[in-house]
Amino acid sequence: MSRIDEILGRMDALEKELRVELRDMKSEFLYTVQKKKVRFSAEVRAAHRELAAKWSDYVYDSGVWVMLTLPFIFMPLIPALMIDVSVWLYQLMCFPVYGIPRVKRRDYVVIDRHSLKYLNLIEKVNCYYCGYFNGLIGFVREVAARTEQYWCPIRHARPVKSVHSRYRHFFPYGDAKGYREGLNEVRTRFDDV
């Protein structure tokens, strides 16, 4: 195992540890998740409602310049929806042919912050938007990562700022022999998903 493989393994372990830690925060903020729905006690919901900002105050406090940026924020929504449908269809049609396990979109696109009573309507819309976009980017990245593992599982020569979940399975740059001898095995190595 190379030093790079060791570091990528530690990164994966830390990401798993982070997911567990985030999941365990439920007890600190007194909520449960039942059938994918978040539940707060009545007293916590009441306390949250008292902390909600009026939407009119929220708009006023944001200022004119922030309000003028709204069309630019929502402009990418149409292309995002097109990407969402295209990537969903792509993996639906191609992944079974390649033998790649499908990516569960619901594991990435999580829309749940709207049930927080301390958010006003505008903040809830913002949370829908951000949850959708960030989840969509994560979903698309995982579909692309699995595709890259099948078609071109070779690490880059230059360092990349952020590596995706499948990168640890890739061959080192320049390892022609390893690539030729191990390509078929790497193309089917999805037992960890």
Rank of each mutant, 00 (worst) to 15 (best):
P76L: 06
R106D: 13
V66A: 00
K104R: 03
V109F: 12
L70S: 02
M67W: 13
M67I: 09
L92T: 13
W65V: 07
V110Y: 05
P101V: 08
I111F: 00
R105M: 02
V87L: 11
M93R: 03
V109E: 04
C94M: 14
I83D: 10
Y108R: 11
P71N: 07
F74T: 05
I83R: 03
W88C: 10
L68Q: 10
G99P: 11
F72H: 12
F72Q: 09
C94G: 01
Q91V: 08
P96W: 11
P79F: 09
L77G: 00
P71C: 10
F95Y: 07
D112W: 01
L92M: 09
V66I: 03
L89C: 15
G99N: 00
S86G: 15
A80G: 11
V103R: 02
G99R: 03
V87R: 04
Y108H: 02
R102F: 13
L89P: 04
P76F: 14
W65M: 03
R105H: 04
P101E: 08
M67Y: 14
D112C: 11
P76C: 10
M67S: 12
R113T: 15
M67P: 00
V103H: 09
M82H: 07
W88R: 01
W65Q: 05
M67E: 09
L77F: 15
I78K: 11
K104T: 12
R105L: 06
S86T: 12
I78M: 02
V85H: 09
C94Q: 12
L68E: 04
V64P: 00
R113S: 15
I73W: 12
P76R: 15
V110K: 15
I78D: 10
C94D: 02
I100Y: 10
L89E: 14
V103N: 03
R102P: 05
R102T: 11
I111L: 12
G99Q: 03
T69H: 02
M75E: 08
V66G: 01
M75G: 14
R106H: 12
L89H: 00
D107P: 02
R113W: 05
P79R: 01
I83F: 06
V97Y: 09
R105P: 06
Y90G: 05
V110M: 11
Y108P: 06
L89F: 06
Y90P: 01
P96A: 10
M75A: 15
R113N: 15
L70N: 00
V87P: 10
I100R: 08
V110W: 05
W88I: 08
L68F: 09
V64N: 00
V85Q: 06
V97F: 04
R113F: 13
G99K: 08
V66H: 13
R102D: 14
R113V: 14
D84C: 10
M67A: 06
V110L: 05
L70Q: 02
M93W: 08
C94S: 05
K104S: 01
V85E: 10
I100S: 07
D107Y: 02
V110I: 13
I83G: 03
F74Y: 13
I100P: 05
V110T: 11
D84N: 14
W88F: 13
V85M: 09
M82I: 14
G99M: 09
V87F: 10
R106T: 14
V85N: 11
